[in-house]
Design a protein around this nucleic acid. Structure first.
Lengths: 339, 339
DNA sequence: CTGAAAGCGCTTACAG
DNA sequence: CTGAAAGCGCTTACAG
């Protein structure tokens, strides 16, 4: 069967091409009679509009891109990405946008993808997962190309760019304040990579909470992790030498590693060491211990980012929008209760 | 800046539109002199061809779709998908194809996505993750629409459709044979969902190995899981009543759950119960125990699927291609050594 | 509410 | 090796 065109449908329905186009696109001013006649022919024939022709004429592609720069290594281990992807994907479906995915895994990829993604005729807008210095390049290119973009996470230089982020500072602050309220005094932290904004923001929250109670910071209680279980495990092994009575791990995955180290060391949780994580990944890997943690709205981050992006696409880039979503302390048994 | 067109470049380079097009697309018959002149103008101006116009004229989109039907729930917990995605994504980048992602998370999504994906003008081809009965619908629609497609996994009805799969039967057979060789006699299995082809194929491998040694099957030693850690945990709790001396878990994630149940029960691994998994997810979550497992080439599955798909796109659908990749037994400490 | 017509920016035989 | 020209299949002011 040859591909059907608007022209074919028009002929069969006895109207003009323009009219069929209006029906297909739900334009307001079409008479009920004509509309039903045309729809009948469309359903009968299974006509589907040509996407390229439509984009060419309308200068819209109804497609947005998602760029994951430099194959964020945690992409493969952290449940963060699947949840984010689900939010983005559902939001796109609902608004009738298609999602194009770009995983940057090498320098070659990067060049290629940057030039593809900055072609205005290709995508209506793009979402960039960010939080590392290296991401500035792609963000800058998109700004120069005047392509609507929304950054997921906090970019290093936030001016001129819209982003949707979670309040990492406040989340970490809340976690550590909780430990302080419970009477813990030697509170350690396993940070994320400090060159990432999520890592450094959560560390800042930790410091803020300690400063607030007027404590001096013991730098031996601060250890940089990498958002992996393995990293959490090693970090905790080192921190154990300092005899902490609590730990704030900047991700649940690292908390799981830390717990393993603590147990191997023969200490009890929460009696000897209380622990709080960050993410609320619902990991059943640790159901023998309910982990107190900071829940962050990952799914919602994806949805909001798509909403903002589509707004920029439709109404122009204008002023950058900065959306900061709240986190929530989930109290469970891993840090005990007031003593 | 107004968007540049071929016409603009042609004018500046003093050649025709056709010639610029040939240079841009690396067509063979263009003189070196003209080529360099045109390229100079292109680089100077930053010209990028209009994607829609190109698709419309060439009837190619250079885009392939990846459909994940019914939000395979393990998408959010199993490291399988990120690895698959990486393989697919890298292969696409290298061949200059763009990847459009479709997560089906609801019935509404499904309708929408099926009709979008079966529009010939939209995608050059599509990859469908499969292994459930429900996936037949979308596969059928794509066959009807004569859109090149490759199924990831084994579809229920394999005729007429190309697929790339892992040899699940043989993998499971190898795992269980290994346990038999080690002298284990009460070998249990935690299967995947039996309505999935991966689940039932791996169960078949288990049965094959036992039949081969002439054993009767004890159905109490077979328990259906769901590829989650939680599911593995519960399955193992039940199986423990049967006093098995070995378990074959149809996924590493389930094996992790099973290990938890075994330890809670006070049994030793591998002395009391040997365990073999499937996947080789390199989970550091269980580094206190090195898990013997069947490695499956997930990344390569993605790459091969893209290769086959692009072949179908370029050379016509023709006869369906069935590619079955080998697995490999990774012997570690969780099932001990010969006794 | 509907139609005729211009235009979106490419590719690709067809000549030469 | 290069150019003129047809054609890909839509959308969208502009009239009426």
């Amino acid at each position: 069967m040859p591909n059907l065109t608007l022209e074919d449908i028009a002929r069969q329905a006895g109207v003009s091409r323009s009219t069929v186009s209006r029906v297909v696109n739900n334009h307001p001013h079409t008479s009920e009679a004509v509309r039903t006649r045309v729809m009948a022919v469309i359903n009968e024939t299974g006509y589907q509009p040509n996407v390229a022709a439509r984009s060419l004429a309308s200068q819209r592609t109804q497609t947005i891109g998602l760029v994951l720069p430099h194959a964020v290594s945690s992409f493969f281990t952290d449940p963060y990405f699947p949840r984010l992807l689900k939010g983005i994907s559902e939001a796109c479906n609902q608004r009738d946008y298609v999602l194009a995915l770009f995983l940057i895994t090498s320098k070659d990829d990067e060049k290629n993808i940057i030039s593809k993604v900055s072609n205005r005729s290709f995508l209506d807008g793009v979402l960039v997962q960010s939080g590392h210095h290296g991401d500035q390049q792609i963000i800058g290119r998109l700004v120069d190309a005047r392509i609507p973009q929304v950054v997921l996470g906090r970019p290093y230089r936030a001016d001129n760019v819209s982003f949707v982020n979670v309040d990492n500072v406040r989340g970490a602050y809340t976690a550590v304040s909780h430990l302080i309220r419970l009477g813990r005094r030697r509170i350690a932290t396993i940070t994320g990579p400090l060159e990432s904004t999520a890592g450094s923001d959560r560390k800042e929250g930790y410091l803020m909470a300690l400063h607030e109670r007027g404590a001096r910071i013991n730098t031996n209680l601060v250890f940089e992790g990498d958002f992996t279980e393995q990293g959490g495990y090693y970090a905790m092994q080192t921190l154990l030498h300092e005899n902490p009575d609590a730990v704030f791990a900047a991700s649940d995955v690292m908390a799981i590693g830390a717990i393993r180290a603590i147990k191997e060391n023969g200490k009890r949780i929460p009696e000897d060491i209380a622990i709080v994580g960050f993410d609320d990944i619902h990991s059943s890997t640790i159901t023998d211990l309910a982990l107190t943690t900071i829940r962050q709205p990952v799914f919602e981050t994806g949805v909001r980012a798509v909403e903002v992006l589509i707004d920029l696409v439709k109404n122009g880039i204008g002023f950058p929008q900065h959306i900061i979503l709240d986190t929530k302390l989930m109290v469970r048994s891993s840090c005990g209760s007031n003593s």
